[in-house]
């Protein structure tokens, strides 16, 4: 009797509860919709994320390569309990965020990749996925890491995340940080913003199709000349002194 190998290879996939789409006004006055995407829309995301794997700036290459593999695995049923949200401005892709449920009370943030820069697009998208973990999935905490200094500033510093260094994160096995419910509640109304319901016209435009980014991040013109500014252009290392002092004082 033959074995149905697919049943063995495919992880048990618990259906992710629906995320009620939301929208927010950006500094540009544009309205950005953030909504959940299902497997059938993943091919569009892959097409727009792939070029970023060649952008050796702010760790776009690493993040994009990982996002590509994660959402491809999601679409092909090779990733357990993952969800994917997309941020769109006038239909155009602005950010992709994803994460997964580890246990009914524990979430794991995977990635945030912004395809529009300078408008807190990534920060808004990250906040929205935390909202999904806390308010929809009902998690008590979410484990988080950052690959880039910008991510570290936006998550660890802005939310004042707690250390969970005894727990390796699924992304590279590096020590985890934690967004607890208390920290999340503290960030409501300041970092976690947006409105519901999304006006029909906005939502229709977003769901009609994911349009390509008009101004995606590009590689640096001159890698050698860029070397000094490539890895911490935000000064995140300096902002992180609080934790360094804790380590020094321990």
């Amino acid at each position: 009797m033959s074995v149905d190998l697919e049943k063995i290879l495919r992880p048990v996939d618990h259906p992710m509860p629906p995320f009620p789409a939301k929208y927010m006004t950006l500094a540009s006055g544009e309205e950005m919709v953030i909504r959940q995407v299902e497997r059938d829309e993943v091919p569009d995301l892959l097409r727009y994320v792939e070029p970023l794997t060649h952008v050796e700036r702010d760790f776009y290459d690493v993040v994009a390569a990982r996002v590509y593999s994660e959402i491809l695995a999601y679409a092909r049923h090779r990733y357990q309990d993952q969800y994917v949200l997309v941020a769109q401005i006038d239909g155009e892709i602005a950010a992709v965020v994803n994460g997964r449920q580890v246990t009914p009370k524990l979430g794991m943030s995977l990635h945030t990749v912004a395809l529009r820069r300078g408008l807190r697009v990534g920060a808004h998208a990250f906040a929205t996925k935390m909202e999904y973990h806390m308010d929809v999935l009902g998690h008590d905490e979410v484990l988080i890491v950052a690959e880039s200094p910008i991510g570290f500033r936006r998550w660890m510093i802005e939310y004042q995340l707690e250390k969970r260094f005894d727990t390796p994160h699924e992304l590279g096995g590096v020590p985890s940080w934690s967004l607890t419910r208390e920290l999340f509640d503290r960030a409501r109304d300041t970092l976690v913003v947006g409105r519901r319901p999304v006006p029909d016209k906005l939502l229709e435009k977003a769901t009609a199709g994911i349009l390509p980014p008009s101004d995606p991040p590009t590689p640096p013109a001159d890698l050698l000349a860029a070397t000094r500014s490539m890895y911490d252009s935000t000064g995140t290392a300096l902002m992180s002194q609080r934790w360094q002092q804790e380590v020094d004082n321990a």
């Binding site: 540009s28 300078g118 807190r120």
Partner: peptide, 19 residues
């Protein structure tokens, strides 16, 4: 900066203080 901004986006909208 090739990024237009509006009074709504940076001052008046509910998200303005975050933006």
């Amino acid at each position: 900066l090739h990024q237009p901004i509006t009074l709504d986006g940076i001052l008046d909208s509910p998200e303005a203080m975050t933006n």
